[in-house]
């Protein structure tokens, strides 16, 4: 019996060196996974990133200046569900993530070029679009407009935040209104859709980029897979609502690997000449 106990103990002491790819289940060395920017070397699955991790891949060193960091969720409906009040849930999320809303916004330089960035964070209540998210996008777009700077949003969201009810829905109109003003003034707006970009976010600012970019294999779509299957009572194709599917159907300009994203964005922006 002693033989078994010893072996078990040995396994427990062994540090966890492996990451299992959520897509293809391949075992990859953690170090290798990190070095590949959390992209699976086997199947090119792009793991979801925290907004700060994403920022580090985009902004030139020490160039980022955050906007409106103090905007955080209120509880306009005094919403409470089976798991308790929204106010508590929001508070816990803010404390746990050290992040005040589902998007990080600010100005920075990319290869020396000034841009305004919005980076959503799926960890924050599913990256849901709520009043604070909409306001931050609105204000960032307003900054881009006033300073004639390109605006880039990285989306990662399940959609509108139910806990803020209709006010969340209205953020779709509010953010699109902000983008409309950029269009009018000829300010570039580039949308980068990462895993996942669905519901009210796909049906608003994420889909109306001058250029729509996606990360490989990202889930992008309006309605949920299950809802569609229940409605039409048939099985959906495996590649349904993937970045590749959207490109095939004409809604994504380019699928870009994480490692090349920054340079790609800069290459594209060279084609905009500020008047």
């Amino acid at each position: 019996m002693g033989w078994f106990t010893r072996k078990k103990a040995a396994v427990e002491e062994k540090p966890d060196l492996w990451t299992v790819c959520p897509a293809c289940k391949a075992h990859v060395y953690k170090e290798e996974w990190q070095a590949a920017l959390k992209v699976c070397p086997q199947c090119n699955y792009h793991e979801r990133l925290a907004c700060t991790e994403r920022l580090a891949l985009l902004a030139d060193e020490d160039s980022f200046m955050e906007f409106d960091a103090d905007i955080r969720p209120a509880d306009p409906l005094k919403f409470s569900d089976a798991k308790g009040p929204y106010a508590d849930k929001a508070q816990q999320t803010v404390e746990k993530l050290k992040l005040n809303e589902s998007i990080l916004t600010g100005g920075c330089k990319m290869n020396g070029r000034s841009v305004v960035l919005g980076i959503m964070d799926f960890r924050f209540l599913g990256g849901s679009l709520a009043s604070g998210t909409g306001e931050k996008i609105f204000l960032a777009a307003d900054y881009a407009l006033r300073h004639k700077l390109p605006f880039i949003i990285f989306s990662a969201s399940g959609g509108a935040r139910m806990h803020e009810g209709i006010l969340s829905l209205m953020q779709m109109a509010k953010t699109c209104a902000a983008i409309a003003r950029l269009n009018e003034d000829g300010i570039p707006y580039i949308s980068v859709m990462t895993d996942p970009t669905t519901g009210g976010v796909s049906a608003s600012f994420a889909m109306v980029g001058d250029i729509n970019i996606a990360e490989p294999k990202a889930l992008i779509g309006f309605a949920g897979r299950r809802v569609i299957e229940q409605t039409i009572k048939q099985k959906l194709p495996d590649d349904f609502q993937t970045a590749e599917y959207l490109q095939e159907h004409g809604f994504v300009d380019h699928i870009v690997n994480r490692a090349e994203m920054k340079d790609f964005l800069c290459r594209v922006l060279r084609y905009w000449k500020e008047n």
């Binding site: 699109c176 409309a180 049906a203 608003s204 309006f222 309605a223 949920g224 039409i232 349904f240």
Partner: peptide, 26 residues
Amino acid sequence: GAYPGLEAEARGQAEAIARNLTEMAR
């Protein structure tokens, strides 16, 4: 709500709504 169907997704339900929100604003 907007129709949740395979064809609707393939033809860009999200894009169609997003475009309307953007254009109606101006």
